[in-house]
Computed example of a mutant assay.
Amino acid sequence: MTVDQGPVPIRRLRSPRTGWTALVVVAGLVVCGGLLYDAVAVRTGHRARPWRAETAHRLATLHLDDPVVLISAGVAVLIGALLLGLAVAPGMRRWLPLRQPGAVIDRSGVAALLARRADRLDGVSSLKVKVRRARTTVTMAGTADPAEVQRELRAELARVPLAGEHRLDVRTGKVRR
């Protein structure tokens, strides 16, 4: 005899870029926090930290062809390229979590599965399937009974072991692609 453990807790999917983004944000906060602390200290009448005074003096006397300036510019370009790469890296929004921890399925795969099942039904001339995180919307055109189509698609969707509650809405109307 098996005992149902209840609903599986859904863990939000995290993109591999999340760790790098957190690292860049923490580093930026540390650097900006140090600079802000020193700027506030100078504004309140205290002396500037020796590193700040030395940095200001060096920046005022350095030339653009100095190796320190060139290396600093190269590091700034690398950090900018890293941030740009993190910004355009694919996230995890196209994946839906499954009941088994760590397992995912592509939303377009679920949409193709439902579309293939609906194409086998009599009276469905065209349809559009839109799969979101907690809801799938099917817009169909044809003479098929929407309630029958919904029953068939719900049975097909039940075969996919999605981790959370997933709603299925079947609508009739013009299908816009």
Rank of each mutant, 00 (worst) to 15 (best):
G102W: 10
E165N: 13
G74Q: 03
V69S: 04
L168I: 06
E152G: 12
R58L: 06
A163K: 00
R117A: 11
E152V: 15
D122T: 10
L153Q: 02
R167H: 11
L83G: 15
Y37Q: 12
V170R: 00
R47V: 13
Y37N: 14
P9L: 04
A41H: 09
L86A: 10
Y37L: 15
D145K: 00
A48P: 05
Q100N: 03
R52S: 02
P7Q: 11
R11C: 06
R132V: 14
P50T: 10
R167I: 08
G91E: 08
P146K: 02
A134R: 14
M140E: 12
C32D: 14
A41F: 06
V3R: 00
Q150G: 04
V68K: 11
V170Y: 02
G19K: 13
R159H: 09
R14G: 12
D145F: 02
V160S: 05
L64I: 15
T139F: 00
L70I: 14
P101K: 01
I10K: 08
L78D: 04
D38T: 03
S15W: 05
T172M: 07
T18H: 13
G6F: 01
V31G: 14
T61A: 11
V170H: 00
D119I: 04
D106Q: 07
S125G: 01
R47Q: 15
K174M: 08
P7Y: 09
K174R: 11
L59G: 04
G28N: 11
G102K: 05
D119P: 02
E54V: 02
G85R: 03
Y37I: 10
L62R: 09
R58E: 04
K128Y: 07
D145C: 01
L113W: 07
K174W: 01
G85Y: 00
G6C: 04
R171P: 00
L153S: 06
H63C: 12
G173N: 04
L70A: 14
V88R: 03
R93Y: 03
D122F: 05
G28H: 11
L23C: 06
V160T: 13
A27S: 13
L98C: 02
V8G: 00
A144T: 04
A60N: 08
V124G: 03
A22W: 14
P101M: 05
W51V: 04
V129I: 05
A73N: 05
V77I: 05
A147Q: 09
R151P: 09
G45N: 14
T2N: 07
A89G: 02
G80R: 02
P146N: 03
A73Y: 01
P16H: 10
H46W: 11
H57M: 06
D66R: 00
L157S: 10
D119S: 15
V69P: 01
R47L: 15
R120K: 14
V25Q: 07
A76Y: 01
R167V: 11
H63G: 10
T44M: 15
T143S: 05
S125A: 10
L35H: 12
L78A: 12
V104W: 03
R159N: 07
P101T: 03
G19W: 12
V149H: 00
D66P: 02
D66I: 08
G34P: 08
M92C: 06
R132Q: 15
D65E: 13
